[in-house]
Design a protein around this nucleic acid. Structure first.
Lengths: 190, 190
DNA sequence: TGTAGCATGTAAGCCGTTACATGATTGA
DNA sequence: TCAATCATGTAACGGCTTACATGCTACA
């Protein structure tokens, strides 16, 4: 059954961005990835975007078009091909959906609470709350730009999900900080 | 200021497990990582645990003790050293706390909803709900084993966090699935 | 005139994985 | 006696990052 192995997920993520039908340069793709992908997948390095694009092109899933020969600067704009659309659909339909992977340094450090002590751990949670606020503000911006454009209904759903997630995290961090306070007041046992 | 660069976070995670004071073999460490770390960091491959342990030993942060020479099989049990405890505390106190990184294939695929279509996307969310239930059951088990032992108060907090997170995810997945149904009933616009 | 942003890449290297290799012990 | 589990590694390789290299364009 000549099954070709899947490309790395990040390839499909980038191909997916291109599936919204606009022609994009590597640079633009990176910008969009930073404003969307980064919240639930990764923010690929600039250089990685270019290597990924090269691979996609090698596979015929995207096509580059030289843009602005004379006068303006020459750049390469990439567009998804029919084969690319087909392969993206194949991947979405037939390849197994992995369970989310969470790399959560705050949770890891909380886990090690006995080493850092309750004050330091609580402080970390409070700092986390602040960062969460900043990240949330960025995402609010992104969500606002999507508006209710039906072409971006799905991205809007994901953004809403992300917003709710940040709210959940803030609630948890606050609760856990409070719990550390309570434990500190009444230390080992009654 | 002769700052030594940090080791990779996974090293500290493993060192952190050893900081709970029991002497462990690489194999046992892997088992514990699968039952704790995996929920909020990673489940390192068996071979990776061994290479990480070798690095930790090279740095003097853990010490290996040959166990069971005669009669039983010879194995190597690792214990954290004073230097290891010191370095772990230094890392917890002085190295910057990264923002959580989420690799969420379900969100990625939802983002690409216009390619797969609402039915297929909804199906994915329903499948995700099922997987979530399974993972949650595993974590409930882990939480139960921690009980209210004060030595594992911090790990227990993290487990509670994880449980609440899975509940949040389940709520979101269900809501989004419902939203897709509603959109399917009343397609483009009124 | 200079700096920030646009634009495109190559090279080296680390983290972590899978595949491979090996063998002892326990219990059905 | 056979399989599962315990136990320990090495080798090859892939994904992705940082560092490095280069140069144009817009604008203050």
């Amino acid at each position: 059954m000549g099954q070709v192995p899947d490309l790395p997920t990040t390839s499909y993520a980038l191909l997916g961005l291109l599936s919204f039908e606009q022609e994009l340069t590597g640079y633009q793709l990176k910008q969009w990835a930073d404003a969307s992908l980064r919240f639930y997948w990764v923010a690929p390095a600039m250089s990685h975007v270019y290597t990924e694009l090269a691979r996609l092109e090698r596979h015929g899933l995207v096509a580059a078009r030289a843009r602005g020969g004379d006068g303006t600067r020459a750049t390469r704009a990439y567009a998804i091909t029919d084969e690319g659309r087909h392969e993206l659909r194949r991947w979405l339909e037939h390849s197994p959906v992995e369970f989310p992977l969470l790399k959560h340094p705050v949770a890891l450090r909380l886990f090690l609470g006995h080493v850092a002590g309750p004050e330091r751990t609580k402080r970390m949670l409070v700092d986390y709350l602040e960062t969460l606020r900043e990240q949330r503000a960025d995402l609010v911006q992104v969500r606002a730009e999507l508006g209710d454009d039906p072409a971006f209904a799905a991205p809007a759903m994901v953004a809403d999900w992300g917003l709710a997630y940040y709210d959940f995290e803030a609630r948890m961090a606050a609760d856990l900080a409070a719990r550390l306070d309570a434990d500190a007041d009444e230390p080992p046992a009654g």
